Amino acid sequence: MLASLPITAHAQCGGASWYALHSKTASGERMNPAAMTAAHRNLPFGTRVKVVNRNNGRSVTVRINDRGPFVRGRILDLSKAAAERLGFLRAGHTPVCLEVVG
């Protein structure tokens, strides 16, 4: 398992997983599995981050709208659509790096 690295210069590497809720996110939005969104422990809501799957090089930009993940070694929980674009939907988790882009 990859260890989570601290955020430095708006970049971070660690594990990511995907999730789908049938309720509201911590920001108050209803969870939309088809949206390009993610949960992060402490980045402000609305922050846009570029996420790169370290296994296959695919990338996607998502907006932070929830809190989490709450699993050791993971730095991001992504929406189902974002996980699909990154190519790890079936695996459930993957190593990623993220960079704040806005």
Rank of each mutant, 00 (worst) to 15 (best):
residue 66 D to S: 13
residue 83 A to R: 11
residue 54 R to N: 14
residue 80 K to G: 03
residue 27 S to M: 06
residue 86 L to K: 07
residue 22 H to R: 00
residue 72 R to A: 15
residue 85 R to P: 00
residue 49 V to E: 02
residue 42 N to R: 13
residue 102 G to I: 05
residue 76 L to A: 09
residue 45 F to S: 08
residue 100 V to C: 03
residue 46 G to S: 08
residue 13 C to A: 15
residue 24 K to W: 00
residue 88 F to Y: 15
residue 36 M to Y: 09
residue 29 E to V: 04
residue 68 G to S: 13
residue 96 V to Y: 02
residue 89 L to G: 07
residue 94 T to E: 07
residue 80 K to R: 15
residue 29 E to L: 07
residue 96 V to A: 07
residue 45 F to Q: 07
residue 91 A to H: 12
residue 90 R to A: 14
residue 39 A to C: 12
residue 30 R to T: 11
residue 76 L to D: 08
residue 11 A to S: 13
residue 7 I to F: 12
residue 34 A to Q: 15
residue 44 P to S: 11
residue 41 R to Y: 09
residue 26 A to W: 12
residue 45 F to N: 08
residue 84 E to W: 00
residue 65 N to E: 06
residue 55 N to I: 02
residue 85 R to G: 02
residue 27 S to G: 07
residue 63 R to N: 02
residue 99 E to P: 04
residue 50 K to A: 13
residue 22 H to K: 00
residue 52 V to T: 15
residue 63 R to L: 01
residue 65 N to H: 05
residue 36 M to K: 08
residue 14 G to Y: 04
residue 56 N to W: 00
residue 45 F to R: 10
residue 70 F to Y: 09
residue 34 A to L: 13
residue 4 S to C: 13
residue 19 Y to Q: 01
residue 32 N to W: 04
residue 4 S to L: 13
residue 92 G to F: 03
residue 30 R to Y: 13
residue 82 A to Y: 01
residue 8 T to R: 14
residue 26 A to R: 12
residue 21 L to K: 02
residue 56 N to T: 03
residue 37 T to E: 03
residue 34 A to D: 14
residue 9 A to W: 04
residue 36 M to L: 15
residue 2 L to H: 10
residue 24 K to F: 01
residue 70 F to V: 01
residue 96 V to H: 03
residue 76 L to K: 09
residue 40 H to Y: 06
residue 10 H to Q: 13
residue 36 M to R: 08
residue 1 M to H: 13
residue 46 G to M: 08
residue 26 A to L: 11
residue 74 R to G: 11
residue 73 G to H: 14
residue 48 R to D: 06
residue 85 R to A: 04
residue 77 D to F: 01
residue 4 S to G: 14
residue 17 S to A: 15
residue 12 Q to F: 04
residue 47 T to N: 05
residue 9 A to C: 07
residue 25 T to L: 05
residue 35 A to L: 05
residue 89 L to V: 05
residue 62 V to S: 11
residue 4 S to W: 04
residue 84 E to R: 03
residue 86 L to C: 08
residue 40 H to T: 05
residue 41 R to K: 15
residue 101 V to L: 05
residue 7 I to Q: 07
residue 38 A to E: 04
residue 13 C to G: 09
residue 75 I to H: 11
residue 4 S to H: 06
residue 53 N to K: 00
